[in-house]
Design a binder for these strands. Structure first.
Lengths: 339, 339
DNA sequence: CTGTTAGCGCGTTCAA
DNA sequence: TTGAACGCGCTAACAG
């Protein structure tokens, strides 16, 4: 029966100490700073650990140190390839340095975000990583009061709580508009899904509109309440064409929408990029496969994850703290067939 | 300066107890079983908690209980949409019941898997969730000795350590072959990426070959060492055609390969499904968008996550344990244009 | 470099 | 139903 709770003979630090003929605190010290212990003691401890199969109890350690090796990570959705990429890259590095990633999805819900932040803070984490710069006031307060580095990611612009790693979505929208304009397009539209929840998509839309306005070019912003999908894309295109049948260049809030648009254009017999130029955002794997292939914007999600891991590790280990560091990971326009 | 460690005034259970005029253990009892405390005391405690903004210290609780509300989850890669879906679905349910998900990617490396398992076990988790049924012997031993439910997911077949939720990859391979045969295809091939690491892909290939053999039909298995991508797919197709230029039906180890094949067929002027039928695996979002759209197999990754959450929660709460439960979440063939 | 001494904040007996 | 006592396994001063 595997359910009994107290039956397992757990090897603890004092057992290791006894086997190695040293005191528990020497073992503890060896585990945390191997160099601070004599070679003889270190070797004895190491072999005792291996023979006994000792595994440290991280909860006890965390309780005593008032700090755990946990990093709390809050994202809108891991189903989104962006965040999956960032969190995976981050986890790989952190894991190799003894940090454990706890993650949760908010599904763009501020109440869920607050719950997750509260839950993670109750583990006395080594760091908190959260998506975006906008949070409920209470969430912000909790994070500001947190006794650990706080990294806000995937967005730059407003003033961060502590550290920030990401890029400007306003700039992305502007780059989308500039690209279409450079291609000779003069009647633009930005098509976005679920922008009422996704503030970063909204910022891209605003940047897009601003850039067009400054260039003296017409630009519609069309949005749909539902999340990105092929159907949403079809509905968005219909709506945009209804507003202005002569639209010749569109930016999509993400590549799922952009690919859906490509698909819908085929269905309608609209030639891309002849009649309509399309530029996406995200550079999904399939952006390169479509026909025509999708011109889009690549944001470097993995770099965001790596930078965050580096930042957190340097704060934790170096002691040297890049106070209020802001890292811009940038983005590039990937020009392909659709625009 | 946010780096000082002991400066934050943490509200602890004893503070709540004092404010509510009860003893700490009554507060503890109230938190764990609200019904076991008198109405008066309960109300007093509740308001004290809210006024003080008390947040339980999960490490202290876990240490005392010899068990944390952590669930360790080990997947090959969160970048893989399958696992992102499963883990997200699981996390959503678990989080609503007070369980925290800690996850890590193995990148199909058994040593990395072992490290992660060891790390998660040192948190005295409430449950362990791991991908597949095959692990290093030591990993298996650790998991078998673990004092918590262990769920192996995304694979059924061999005998599980404890609980299992998934489906048979052998059956998937057979279904792919059957579908192609039913479509009148007589010269088959299975094209797989990175099958030396991905045992489940290998099982699909074996099932595919077995089914073809039993039907008296030729079937090649072609593989490529590198991970799935458009280039890998192109190389695989070239290799398959070199082995047998008359191949008329292929199954891909996943939809990324399948979509890459579709793309490569366009490039080569091979009509799909006229000259070549293609069936994938995974039902990626873009399988429905391609031209022709991709016939594939849908595995219900979210259901796997939900079932796991339900299983774990019932073991943890119900006490009733579905000992050695095996849940088959199945799969369906999604017929579209490519086969 | 090592050992001693005190807790970390809470769950869990058990007696009242 | 409540409270007192005890200890979970470890870290962090400090003294030697």
């Amino acid at each position: 029966m595997r359910r009994s709770r107290r039956n397992r003979q757990t090897i603890k630090m004092s057992d290791v100490a006894e086997a190695a003929n040293v005191s528990p605190s020497t073992v503890s010290l060896y585990l945390r700073r191997p160099g601070a212990v004599s070679k003889r003691a270190g070797a004895a401890i190491q072999s005792a650990i291996e023979e006994l199969g000792y595994v440290p109890n991280l909860m006890a350690g965390g309780l005593a140190a008032a700090r755990s090796r946990v990093v709390g990570v809050v994202v809108p959705s891991m189903r989104n390839a962006f965040f999956a990429q960032t969190v995976s890259a981050m986890q790989a590095i952190m894991s190799s340095r003894g940090l454990q990633v706890m993650f949760g999805n908010t599904d763009y819900d501020e109440a869920a975000e607050l719950d997750l932040v509260r839950a993670y803070l109750s583990w006395s984490p080594s760091a908190m990583v959260i998506t975006g710069l906008h949070h409920a006031p209470l969430t912000r307060d909790l994070l500001r009061a947190a006794d650990c580095p706080v990294v806000e990611m995937w967005e730059l612009g407003a003033s961060p709580i502590d550290l920030a790693v990401g890029f400007s979505h306003d700039e992305v929208g502007r780059a989308q508009a500039r690209h279409l304009i450079r291609k000779g397009r003069r009647r633009l539209a930005f098509l976005g899904a679920r922008m009422q929840d996704d503030r970063r998509a909204m910022q891209r839309a605003d940047g897009f509109a601003a850039e067009a306005r400054e260039a003296g070019i017409a630009a519609e912003i069309v949005h749909h309440i539902k999340p990105a999908s092929a159907e949403t894309a079809a509905a968005l295109l219909a709506k945009a064409l209804a507003k202005d049948p002569a639209i010749d260049g569109v930016a999509a809030s993400n590549d799922t929408i952009a690919l859906g648009l490509l698909f819908e254009c085929v269905r309608r017999g609209l030639d891309v990029p002849q009649h309509l130029s399309i530029i996406g955002f995200g550079d999904l794997e399939f952006a390169a496969f479509s026909n025509p292939s999708l011109t889009t914007i690549r944001p470097f999600g993995d770099v965001i994850g790596e930078e965050i891991a580096g930042l957190v590790l340097s704060v934790l280990e170096g002691g040297e703290r890049p106070e209020n560091a802001i890292i811009n990971t940038g983005f590039v326009v990937v020009e392909r067939g659709s625009a």
